[in-house]
Design a protein around this nucleic acid. Structure first.
Lengths: 191, 191
DNA sequence: ATCATTTCTTAACTTAAGTGAACGAGCTAT
DNA sequence: ATAGCTCGTTCACTTAAGTTAAGAAATGAT
């Protein structure tokens, strides 16, 4: 499982054995169970989460209703907003499948970056890439209807539709569960 | 105007005079006129754009229709997706006011980063921060109705509503110009 | 100053999403 | 096994956005 992490990192920088060992000494790997909550609204954390296996989701509690806004699956990760601006978190992060995560905290990465400055380069490339990608995703969302978004998701991340409950998918698509149900029925009719 | 750039940079790293001079020697500052197109669909560029004064917008041409997805005003900037993944651009970038921009290109920043590695640190902090902010913006967009989005924009970026044409604002809000018109009339009624 | 174009608004109509309620299927815990 | 939940779907109704068209207002070009 560690190899998957190194494989991912190698897309951005190359690591010596020494550097790999430094990383392995940091107790990065964590198993979490379906339903485990990694971060709650109002909490603070300096942790970042990277998914090696499984799926985590981000959701808000808005007037007692859960609104899911993001899923992270294999080889995807997030640094919560609150870890960057040192606020309390506005959202929850929880685990929707038994998962294996790399959990790294900010102090840790400051240490690592001191020892191996090229980690900064990786983090920079990675976050620039993710930023550009997020912008494209946002653009696609803005410029399409709920039905187009669903069809788009079906193309791009068919796994999500399988592994994620409908009502969570619905808010991810910016609509209510009933509307998603109806929209799917409508698509089936058309075929 | 250069001071505004240094002031911005100083939020992330501190610069020596030598470093400032190196930056100034790079011919970074450009004046552009309202309507000037900085990037077209299908083009490639390695340039990044940072707005010192004025406003630029990102828009797509989808079935002959312009869909505006982003605005960048004072002290905001973007690195186009195509500059990161070396593709042809999917979108246009143009100037909606006479503006003063910092235009930096990728080769240039590689040079600068070699000389002054702390620029990498700045870029990293900056893009991590922007990524987290973009995610929050996206979340807000997903979890609110067009009307809420408009009211939200009115709070957070009242300047945009003044300086940007309605039909561009509309697609920025994910709706048609007619719907924006109607929605604004509805809000006025309620008051 | 005038003409042409673009932009914004309004209106009538269509389509789709939101809302509230009901029902059955599947899970969970006891 | 069953009682209690959650989840997904369906329905009827409401509300708002999309569409098409028309006209007024603002802008730009000659």
């Amino acid at each position: 499982m560690q190899d998957k992490l190194f494989e991912f990192i190698s897309k951005y920088i190359s690591l010596t054995e020494e550097e790999k060992n430094t990383l392995l000494s940091l107790d990065l790997f964590h198993s979490v169970k379906k339903g485990d909550v990694l971060l709650k609204e109002g909490q603070k954390t300096l942790n970042s989460f990277f998914v090696l296996k499984g799926c985590i989701r981000v959701y808000y509690n808005i007037n007692g209703e859960e609104k899911t806004t993001a899923f992270y699956t294999e080889m995807e990760g997030l640094t919560p907003h609150c870890a960057i601006n040192k606020n309390q978190s506005e959202y929850y992060i929880s685990c929707i499948e038994d998962s294996i995560l790399v959990v790294s905290n900010d102090n840790m990465s400051i240490e690592v970056n001191k020892k191996f400055p090229k980690f900064d380069i990786m983090c920079r490339k990675l976050s620039e890439e993710l930023l550009a990608k997020k912008q494209i995703d946002f653009d696609e969302f803005k410029t399409s209807s709920p039905e187009q978004r669903y069809l788009n998701l079906l193309q791009k991340r068919p796994d999500l539709i399988q592994r994620v409950p409908q009502h969570q998918l619905a808010s991810y698509l910016g609509i209510k569960p009933q509307s998603l149900s109806r929209l799917r029925a409508r698509i089936l009719e058309k075929k």
